[in-house]
Nucleic acid binder design. Structure first.
Lengths: 166, 166
DNA sequence: GCTTGTTGCTTCGGATTCGAAGCAACTGGG
DNA sequence: CCCAGTTGCTTCGAATCCGAAGCAACAAGC
């Protein structure tokens, strides 16, 4: 397999390495800020932010997991943690007894509001500062296209669950 | 000093979210490939790759940690693991008795060679496939600039001015 | 040569992550 | 109604990660 190990040219390598390094550093810094400002991990912040953006402030566990890339078990762990701290509530969905609906509380919204300015400040100073308006636009466009492509791509596993192969 | 809690416009948000999601998904997929192909974690692969690129195949621990963004202790953990598997050796530096020099072994190079084609294939299919040549160039340029800016920025002395004024 | 201070790495304890297995609720065919 | 299959979430065990404290080797000042 993989008989065509073409190697990358410097530009491609540069793009790849820069992507990895930028996201790592950014995440690291943001994580520190969130920890200091509101004792939140990055995942917890993402979850709260997503819930806060929802019309009714709630989502199913699965939808949350999909939006944040993390594993189901990891999400359970964080949701429990957030629930114990009173930032979200969890209740079985009225429709589907097996699905759990997570809802952000007022305290959760307060916490979100408390950490948000610092979050923006970090992004501003670290990510956007060296970029012109046009750079941001290009970045959004190109990375947005990559993201759509990734989402569309099959999970790439010789899945144990083969079904529906047309 | 809550002077500028400016919120981001959709383009900035899009760039930020796309960056996070792309890097997360990419990393996730790459991690799986590396695990299957050579039982390596992403960090381990990065370390081996970096060592393999070095003229003499070796680096000091600190330089490795800086290049890979991870914590010192985490690096120690991974280096020990790699050493036990015979992929690298560790020895005190002749100059500085306290610094440890990590060197890739032939077996390490073999492992690297084994996983590399698959690694490239993943990147190709996931990251580069939807991009035109020009997109890659722009990406390398813009992200490269951001990376340089981040490296120049002080790691954490940027926010110590704030007190918990809740 | 001693005493401080710094630097480089490791150990330690705790938090977070994941995949696999387990359990409970829905679904469809008989 | 029952049975197998699927779906949604949680529990479990193990791996990985980090920051803080600890230890050893250098560097400076006296």
């Amino acid at each position: 397999m993989a008989d065509t190990p073409r190697s990358f040219d410097p530009t491609e390598l540069g793009a790849y390495f820069a992507l990895i390094e930028v996201s790592s550093l950014l995440r690291h810094t943001v994580e520190q800020q969130l920890r200091e400002a509101g004792d939140l991990s990055y995942v917890q912040f993402q979850l709260l932010a997503r819930l806060g953006n929802s019309p009714d402030g709630s989502y199913r566990m699965t939808d949350l997991a999909d939006g944040v890339v993390y594993s189901r078990s990891g999400l359970t762990y964080q949701a429990q943690s957030l629930e114990q701290r009173g930032l979200v509530t969890r209740a079985p969905s009225p429709d589907d007894e097996r699905s759990t609906t997570v809802t952000i509380t007022q305290q959760g919204r307060d916490t979100l509001a408390k950490v948000f300015p610092g979050h923006i400040a970090v992004l501003d100073g670290l990510l956007f500062e060296p970029l012109a308006r046009q750079d941001v636009e290009v970045l959004a466009d190109v990375l947005g296209r990559v993201r759509d492509h990734m989402r569309a791509a099959p999970p790439r596993s010789a899945a144990p669950r083969r079904r529906k192969t047309s």
